[in-house]
Design a protein around this nucleic acid. Structure first.
Lengths: 352, 352
DNA sequence: ATTAGCACTCGGGACTAATGAGTGCTAAAA
DNA sequence: TTTTAGCACTCATTAGTCCCGAGTGCTAAT
């Protein structure tokens, strides 16, 4: 634990640097930190902080800049989360519009809101619920040998896909299909639908197997698509403006562009004790992010489904202001989604 | 019309500049242009070309660079579209995968292909067909007071939206709904569905009006969504690499980010005599694009539906190579989509 | 009409000098 | 023992200067 005064100085350095982006020197600190000591004393403390690895100087004759460890210490011990102002609250709320009832849209909107609000890039995932089950499957004929299959899950995710069949689609076929679907899929957890399950089912169909097979494979595809939580990134171009990325912003954008690691980004470390996670610089496991920080917050729907939303920006970001904003946004999302979830859960299995 | 030799020189300048990005001088041209004249003669011609506004020099002691007018003249009169090599063909083809039957996906894939192939940004629109009509509308109950409405158009576009109802959804309601839908919407051109039409319909329902209203409004929304051709942009981050955008790439990306003008970009000038359109620098109506060129190609499905696909990049792009590539890609798209269209058109109105 | 020759221009790189913010250290003061 | 004043030192940054060389435009000869 750092001595009181040194903490104060570190906090002042971090906050000042976050605000101005310039290395901060001992003189400047004198007035900012509210300490009644001379700049020389502060310099001594700063030398200590430097030795301990919390701050560093870009070059000999410059002020100090927080290191990653410095940010970490600040975030863990010194930072006082700011109170959200009323107009900020409103701003966050007004960005979210949840009439549509579609979780994917809500998360998208939440991302956009964060982008507007923070001027960073935002990342969000649609809820993934290991206990989600199939609510409904519909087949909509499109042409003699083509149909749309529509899948709806208990979490409100809707997926659809076109499917070409080998044989013409007749009324009989449709009836048979909805029969099979009703018996085998309704209420089935998404995780239970896999290739083996589909093949076993096809095998059991006997004569109908040939005509049904493509349709069932399509169902499998849809379930797959619905299981994977979608990762959404927006506001990347905001990052271009920050001088810390300067010339190699392209690299970062390219990295963010290929979706694969994004899921990893938010899934992150398993310590679910805290609902908000701050990752600074190389704490992100990717070297492309070594100059970036993420603030990731998990939302919950009921007890099972979870997802995450957060931001990506330069390590020099206003943590104390951003954390409460993201927390607030997450709360709203959780509430919205839980409402719908409740509604749906209570609906039972009524059919027409 | 420029004299033969001057044309040759202009072409050489444009091509050389496109290749190297460096201003090209008289000496260099001597060997490139294949002219057996001295550099002094070439200088005289260059002076003429400069006077005519086709080329310019960045500073007094530098070589020449094509002006916008220079590119234009080159593109209109001098450029010989390159033959596509076999492996380039394959590369384009392999990027497109049209098993899914979903036009939106195909266009998306086409965009990605262009991005990979050209290293520029790609833009594409989904087909818009003024004669498109409603093929099917389904209602899928989700919870007591909530349903998914799914719309399918004759062009294969599928849209869905959640809808909250004021009264619980009963089997009766569902039957009534599909009855109304069948009678009033099936086969209706998208353009015929509008607020007035919906209101008239609601008014005619009498007692059922209250329960149906939200559902019908949702249909209206869906039709709206299906009518508007979606604009897709990808590969923006590629543009960061080009030094012509240097420091203000952010501006361009921001511009491309807000979707609104994108539709305008591709809809463009009405001269439909040529299926491929090249817009150089300020020929694009937006000042953010004054250093960019677009190559836009229109695809057709049957006789009605059209859309566009193209690229955006710095004016210094290899027009003679890109034009045939994009043309080829467009041909493939047209073919793919037309195939499905035929299939669907021939399907008639069979119902289950 | 073409060409050789030449003076001229000017961006960019290399080098130098001056500036000044900020430091670390030392020795005196509290 | 802690704090402070003072001072020499470092080094990024900026401005100034010089020089090089690619490329030009012009003129006079072919």
């Amino acid at each position: 634990m750092l001595p009181q005064r040194r903490q104060k100085i570190l906090a002042a350095i971090v906050e000042q640097y976050i605000e101005t982006g310039e290395p901060v020197g001992s003189k400047a600190l004198q007035s900012i930190a509210g300490l009644d000591v001379s700049s020389a004393t502060i310099r001594n403390e700063m030398a200590e902080l430097t030795a301990q690895g919390f701050i560093t100087q870009p070059h000999t004759s410059a002020g100090r800049v927080p290191t990653q460890a410095g940010y970490r210490y600040y975030v863990d011990n010194l930072m006082k989360p700011a109170e959200l102002e009323e107009n900020e609250r409103r701003r966050i709320e007004s960005g979210l519009d949840y009439r549509s009832g579609d979780p994917e849209q809500l998360l998208q909107a939440a991302g956009e809101t964060l982008v507007d609000f923070t001027n960073f890039a935002a990342i969000s995932t649609t809820p993934s619920d290991e206990h989600a089950f199939i609510k409904n499957i519909e087949m909509v004929p499109v042409s003699p040998k083509m149909a749309m299959i529509v899948l709806l899950t208990s979490t409100g995710i809707l997926k659809s896909k076109a499917c070409r069949t080998d044989v013409p689609i007749t009324a009989d076929l449709q009836d048979a299909f909805s029969d099979i679907v009703r018996k085998n899929f309704f209420g089935t957890p998404l995780s239970d639908v896999n290739t083996v399950m589909i093949q076993t089912l096809v095998a059991s169909l006997g004569a109908k197997a040939l005509s049904m097979s493509p349709l069932l494979v399509t169902i499998s595809d849809l379930v797959e698509a619905a299981s994977v939580s979608e990762v959404n990134l927006s506001g990347q171009s905001n990052l271009l403006g920050y001088k810390e990325y300067n010339d190699n912003a392209g690299q970062l954008l390219d990295f963010l562009h290929k979706e694969e690691p994004l899921g990893m980004l938010v899934s992150g470390s398993g310590d679910s004790d805290s609902d908000i996670e701050i990752r600074i610089g190389s704490e992100n496991r990717y070297k492309e992010l070594e100059n970036s920080s993420m603030i990731i917050s998990k939302y919950k729907i009921g007890d099972n489904a979870t997802g995450a939303i957060g931001i990506i920006g330069p390590t020099r970001m206003n943590y104390s202001k951003l954390v409460p904003s993201i927390k607030y946004l997450t709360d709203i999302i959780s509430k919205f989604l839980s409402d719908v979830y409740e509604e749906e859960s209570s609906s039972g299995e009524e059919d027409s």
